[in-house]
């Protein structure tokens, strides 16, 4: 019940925040305030959560250390060996391709019709308020999910 309430409140907050951010004019102070406040709220919540965890617990214990047994329900920290090497190589290659394409697009001026930068390619989605709000919401959810996972893994590591 509590989790459902959190999801409803979170969804409403993300919806309202993204609609507000999407309505601001680029390069205006309100745009900086809207984006900055959204990011600061998420980062502040994460830092507060992490600080609360580290001050209420003792020294961190690494659950992947030899001989230690992770507690039931804990999220183990990933080890370098837990992700197969071919997978790491594939993602590294993909990241290099993205960086290379972005660099080439920037060298062509950024707004070339033959090879635009990633942000120029997203132009079509940024043209309407609703699609822009959807992108802001996706950005906020991505940040919340990422920070939530880090906070959970920190908690599990300190348990």
């Amino acid at each position: 019940m509590l989790a459902a309430g959190r999801i409803v409140v979170g969804t409403l907050a993300v919806g309202a925040c993204s609609w507000w951010v999407a309505g601001t004019r680029p390069f205006s102070s309100s745009a900086y305030v809207a984006v900055g406040a959204s990011a600061a709220m998420l980062l502040g919540a994460f830092v507060g959560l992490s600080a609360g965890v580290s001050s209420s617990r003792g020294a961190p214990a690494r659950c992947h250390e030899r001989g230690s047994v992770p507690r039931p329900g804990s999220v183990p920290r990933p080890r370098p060996g837990s992700v197969p090497r071919p997978v790491r190589v594939a993602w590294l290659t993909w990241s290099a391709a993205v960086a290379g394409l972005e660099t080439a697009a920037l060298a062509l001026g950024g707004r070339s019709s033959e090879l635009p930068t990633l942000s120029t390619a997203l132009d079509h989605l940024l043209a309407w308020h609703s699609s822009r709000a959807a992108l802001v919401a996706a950005w906020l959810v991505l940040g919340a999910v990422g920070l939530g996972r880090i906070a959970r893994s920190s908690r599990a590591g300190q348990a």
């Binding site: 601001t24 680029p26 809207a34 900055g36 980062l43 940024l126 991505l142 940040g143 990422g146 893994s153």
Partner: peptide
């Protein structure tokens, strides 16, 4: 994200994406 520099880099990338796309980008 299992180490602090990685977390900082990911957070910085996320903040940069937000500012670049939603605060410093001209809407066509």
């Amino acid at each position: 994200a299992s180490r602090l520099p990685g977390r900082v880099a990911l957070a910085a990338l996320w903040v940069f994406a937000g500012i670049h796309l939603f605060a410093r980008y001209t809407i066509p």
